[in-house]
Amino acid sequence: MLKMNHLSKVYRTEVVETYALRDFNIDVKEGEFVAVTGPSGSGKTTFLTIAGLLETFSGGEYHLDGIEVSQLNDNARSKIRNEKIGFIFQAFNLIPDLNVYDNIEVPLRYRGMKGAERKQRIMDSLERVGLSSRAKHYPAELSGGQQQRVAIARALAGSPRLLLADEPTGNLDTQMARGVLELIEDIHRDGATIVMVTHDPELAARAQRNVHIIDGQVVDLSEEPRFHSHPEETTQSQR
């Protein structure tokens, strides 16, 4: 699904060159749930933005769903983001001017979907995150957990093959975090590939596989891929 070979990302300013990623290799299989961990500034967010085609990279190869993306123009990249990728951000990133319904509608609009189908999908995904009654609310009127669930509904509505999450529970309390995590696991069960960046080992433990990044490179922790475990158990066992 997601394969990076010898990928590098350099930030250049007038004075210095900084390697955010260097000789970066990763291979995420279709349907996998991978957690990416690492200390602050290790490059895990850079990895996620490149994986999500939000940013270009400086060298190497990146195959997304079998397509080599480095040569794609902006339009093609936008189209892939729109159709294949769902995002969940730490800061939720809802558009404050739009209500819940309209926020979820945004990616569907860019897909050029018909009104009736849009409505169906929006209502379905809202039901799935348990916020059907809040369609007309504005983000500011919702709690953090509710906002993140709207963001997940927005990602869900487009039926993405790849879900990228950046510290999805970072701004939430434990109770809310648990709900959000359950939703993510739900999506995974439905067949989506999930890549989640986190520095929370507890969260990372829920993934099938952990990838550790230090100084812009994947560090092999020699861990066997874990079995998918039931979330309830894991949560309890780690308390």
Binding site: L54, D74, N75, I80, E83, F87, P107, Y110
Partner: peptide
């Protein structure tokens, strides 16, 4: 956000 969600 719009760009991330696929707006060209």
């Amino acid at each position: 956000i719009r760009r991330a969600l696929g707006a060209s």
